[in-house]
Each structure stands twice: as C-alpha cells, then as structure tokens.
Design a protein around this nucleic acid. Structure first.
Lengths: 230, 230
DNA sequence: CGCAGTCTTGACTGGCTTCAACGGAAGTGG
DNA sequence: CCACTTCCGTTGAAGCCAGTCAAGACTGCG
C-alpha cells in the first residue's frame, strides 16, 4: 500500500464553514464544533489519515473527496468498513486505539478537531454529548446492516444494496458517481474485483443499471434493485 | 420460528443484584441502574424478547441463560448479530425502532429497565451518560471485528475466531460451553450448519480442539487456533 | 421405548475465486 | 500534442470452497 501523504494546513474560512453546514442540512453541535475548533487539512489520494493501532487523538469531517476505513489480515486480505463522503464525520472512537486505518480515496479535504476538545465541550453542552452518542449509534446501525450483507447476501444482492445505499447518500438518487475503485467496492462487499465487475455488467445486461463510465452508474430500475436488496 | 413466550415478572432480590454486580467484576452505573430500576423477567427457550421494527422501550441485562439478536431476509436467511451471555447488557439502542429481533437461546432470566429512565438518570450522572456511549462504542467495535470475519475469513478461520472469542467470554478460557446450536453458530458466522459441523470435525482431527459433547468444545491448541485467527 | 430435534457425514453442485489476457482511460514526460 | 507507461476495468476459462441434497446417528424427553 502506498502512502504519499501530502498534507497542507489551513484555517477554515467562514465561507467554507457556512458551506459545510448548509451541506449538512442544518447547523448541528458536532458539525459546528468541528468547524469552529477544527483545522482544515488536505490529503492526497491514497494518503493515510490514521493507522490501525494508533492512539485516537482526532475526529474528522469530510469537506470534499472521500475516505475509506479498513482492516487488514496478515496475508493482505482487506475489509473496508465504511466509505465516508462530503459531510460525513469519521474517526470518532471511544477507546484509546484506532480500530481501522483511514485513507483518502481521492484527494480529500477534511476538518480535524481534537477528540479531547469535543469531549470537554460535551460536558457543558448536553446536545453535543447526545450527538456524540447518536453518531456512534448511527455508525453501529450501518455496520449492523452491513453484517447482513456480508453474512447472507449473494453477489448480486450485495452490489444492488451498495448501489442503492450510495444513491441514498449522493446528490442524485438516480445517478451514482463512485469515488472509489472496483477494488475498493470489492473489499467493501467481501467479493473480488472480478465478481464486482461481472455483476455490474450483468445488472446492465438486465437493464437494471447503465454504466456510462466506469465511475458513474445510472440506476435505471430501482424497483428491480430494491427487489434484490430484499 | 417458534415463539413460546412464557414470561414471569419478579422484583430482583438484593441477593441477585449483588451476584450480578460481582459477576460484572465491579459495580458500574449502568449495571447498578439496571439492577435498581429493573424488573427481572424469565423467557423460555426461543421466546422473543423484542422484534425488529418494534419501538425501543427497554434495555436488558442477561442474568442467566443466553440471548441471540438477528435480522432476517425476506426468504428466511438469517444473520445473527450477537450472542449475549450472563452479564451482558443488550437492547440499548438510540433510535426509535428495533434493528434486530432478540430471542432467548436457552431459558433466560434478564433484568429490564426503561430506556427513558436510564437516559433521565444520565442527565445528572455523567458517569452513566459516558457509560451509555461507551457501551454502544464497544458494541460497534465487536460488530466491526465481525465484519472482517464475514467479509474476508474462510470457514476454518471463522470458526477458530468464534471459539477463541467464546473462550474469552466464558469462565474457562480452555473449555467452551456453547449455549447455542450449530444452526445459530452457522447464522452467526455466515455459513451453513453442515460447514460448521464439518469444520469442527476437521479441527478435532487436526488436534486443535476436542468435542466431548456437541455443546462443549475444549481448546486443545490455542496457538493453532490463534494462527487461524490471524 | 419411541419420537423429535440436533448433529454428523457423504456425494454432488454451483457460485465465486483464481489465473490469465486484453482493452481502455488517465497521467507523464519528451 | 503525442508516445509511453501505468493503472484500472472487463472478460474468459478453469478450479475450489462452501452450499445443497440426502441419509443416518445421536441425544434428550415424554
């Protein structure tokens, strides 16, 4: 794995902050705290943001670009736990050690705040405290849903679930622009790159999707996909 | 699925409460709150404790017996998310709807408390508040570890991981007494019952474990299992 | 003792992986 | 701006791990 870490620190401008909050729908204590207390850092594609086993210092929010978190087995098999896109908070952990490695998928700008600052703020701000818990709970829910995907779904169902999920997170719910490679998708879905590719082709042949470019998927028949999604 | 729900309500005796706290190692706010505020309920084997989609009212703690939580696909495929044994708190969710169904694996006694009571207590008890968050975070970590198992490990590795995990939770770290059936293990590990059975036989043939009875596994060579665990 | 549920084992199948080759897009340097 | 290189994605062929189907053994309970 290649870690070409070129980072560049800047104070977030008021303009940026406003844009972020607009993107989040409404100003929230956690987002607000990150925007106020945080620095903005830029990571190059494939740069490591933090590594598994490292101490947990910071909490992050994606401003632009995308981030993957993953675990490795000793022989190199990789399981991606989550993809984080613009607006997502990630790296919020309760323990002292990182459970995942986080890397930028594409060039990414993230806001960074010290976890200790957030926790300190939470003492006097009950809303923030509850939001920290809620964020962890939401992450748990997503992970639990993913368990079902990895444990019991077939390749087609996994890909369909993935596409519908991505559609629900992007700006359009029909056109999905994928920031990640086929290999990333494979490692997220517990498949191989070949199976992901073949499955997408198959879904296109079945008129469920269109693939104008490899990184863009148009959901042509969401009902069919939803049926696969169970 | 059979739901023979025979439940019996009783006030927890001081004796019981003390025993539970002793089992937990040390008195903790969450446990204490459950013990104080909670009722004790008995569920028969296979009885449903709560169902997916139901409103979240209660939080539970296993006194004796064991509990499984799971999701179903429309065609009956089942993914077990977690097994809960004596001392475990379960059913603590942040949202309004249950994400899993919970059932007693064997006859089980659980303490029950209203979530609203706990949350109310947490307002004035910062330790409890932090413990609620920590509990969710710990559950998240276990689920993330399980993701790697389901996404990237082979049958042998899955079973080895499972056995080592169970050994770490029981009273003996060598003798594992399984409260659950092979089918439950299969649905937890994303395998079939036949594969679980065959894999256990294989591990016994390889002198890594012994199977004196089908529900008791003796870990004979933890290093070998650990190697499979990666 | 008989029955039902659970577990094991065998034979075969199949879905996904592995191995391999190729085509195309994107980035780089001359 | 084009040739070169590298990365990425697709497709094909073959193999294998786990699933499916089936039968039988074991266990506990009425």
């Amino acid at each position: 794995m290649l870690h070409q870490e070129t980072s560049q620190l800047t104070r977030p401008t008021a303009q940026k902050v406003a844009a972020i909050e607009a993107a989040a729908g409404q100003p929230q204590p956690l987002s607000a705290a990150l925007s106020t207390a945080g620095m903005s850092i830029r990571y190059a594609r494939n740069a490591e943001i933090y590594g598994e086993g490292e101490p947990v210092d910071n909490v992050y929010k994606v401003v632009s670009g995308a981030v993957r978190t993953y675990k490795l087995l000793s022989d190199g098999r990789r399981q991606i736990g989550e993809f984080h896109i613009a607006g997502d908070v990630f790296g919020l952990e309760v323990g002292s050690e990182r459970q995942f490695t986080a890397e930028a998928i594409a060039d990414a700008v993230v806001l960074v705040a010290k976890r200790s600052s957030l926790v300190a703020l939470a003492v006097s701000d009950a809303t923030l405290a509850s939001e920290l818990w809620t964020h962890t709970a939401r992450e748990l829910r997503r992970t639990q849903d993913h368990l079902l995907v990895l444990g019991r779904k077939r390749a087609q169902e996994r890909v369909a679930t993935f596409l519908l999920d991505m559609a629900g997170r992007g700006r359009s719910d029909i056109i999905v622009d994928l920031p990640m490679s086929r290999q990333d998708i494979a490692d997220y879905l517990g498949l191989t790159i070949e199976t992901v590719s073949r499955t997408l082709t198959r879904l296109e042949d079945d008129r469920a999707i269109e693939i104008p470019t490899s990184r863009r998927i148009v959901l042509r028949d969401k009902r069919a996909l939803g049926h696969l999604n169970n």
